[in-house]
Amino acid sequence: MKIIVCVKQVPDTSGVVAVKADGTMDRAAMATISNPDDMNALEAALQIKETNPDVKVCVVSMGPPPTESMLRECLAMGADEAYLVSAREFGGADTWATSNTLAAAIEKIGVDKGDIVMCGRQAIDGDTAQVGPQIAEKLGLPQVTYVTAIDYKAGELTVRRELEDGYMTIKVQTPCVLTCIKELNTPRYMSVPGVMECYSKPYAVWDYEALKDSKWVGPVENVGLKGSPTQVYKSFSPPVKGKGTMIEGADKAACEKLVSMLGEKHII
C-alpha cells in the first residue's frame, strides 16, 4: 500500500517578508521552509508506515528546482520515494491549475485500492486550503479535511475531523484524500541514517513533457498561469496606521487618565 504526501516549499512568512515595489512578493529574498501542515501530513504517513511495514511513503511537490532540498529532507525523515514536478509551463498556477498538475502526477505515481493521499490543510503563502479538496475532486476520491486524528487498522481508516464547535468521527473509504492540521502530531526530525540515505533513495523530476498526456494536463493552455481561472487584479500592502495616543507613565494616575479619556469619547 502507498501513501502519497503532497508537500510544498513556501516562503517563511514569519521571518523577514520582502515585498517588491510592484506589490508582489520578493520570493527570492525570503527564506524558504517546508510548509508546516505538510510536515504533519508526512509525519502521519510515517507513523502508519511504522505499524504497517508494507506501506510505501511517496512525497510529491510542484515547484522550482531548489524544491529538491525539501524533498531530500522528507526522504531523510523516512519517506521512500520523492517526485518533483517542475517546469516553466506549470508556473503561476492557481489552485485549479495546481490541483490539475498534482492530480496528474499522483495518477502517474499510481493510486490503487487502499492507498491514501495526504496534504496539509493549507500552505502558508496563499492560505487557501483548496488544493487538497481539488486534487480529491479531480481524482474522484472521497476527502476528509481538517484531520486531527487518524486510526488505521487492517485497511480500515477512521479519522477525526475538527469543527469550530466540536469534531466529527468519520469512517472513510480508500483510496481517499486527507488534509492534515498541526494538532494531528509533532513532526519528527531527520535521522542521521536518513540523511546518509536520502541521496540514494528514488528521486524523479517530471517536467511538462512527462505529464502532458494526462487528461488533467493536456495542452499548455490548460496549465500554469494560462490554465488558471482566477487572476490577480491588484495586490497591495496595507498602509501603516498613524501612531495613537501614548499615555505617560504606567501607574494608577495613568490608568485613571486613560479611563477618563475613554469616558469623554463615550467609548466606555
Binding site: 481539488q134 475532486e137 481561472p229 482566477t230
Partner: peptide, 18 residues
C-alpha cells in the same frame, strides 16, 4: 472551506479563499 473547493473544481471555475 471543505465544500467550496470541491464544488469549484467540479464546476470548472475559480474560487478565492477566505
Amino acid at each position: 472551506r471543505d465544500l467550496g473547493p470541491r464544488v469549484a473544481a467540479r464546476l470548472h471555475t475559480g474560487l478565492t479563499a477566505d
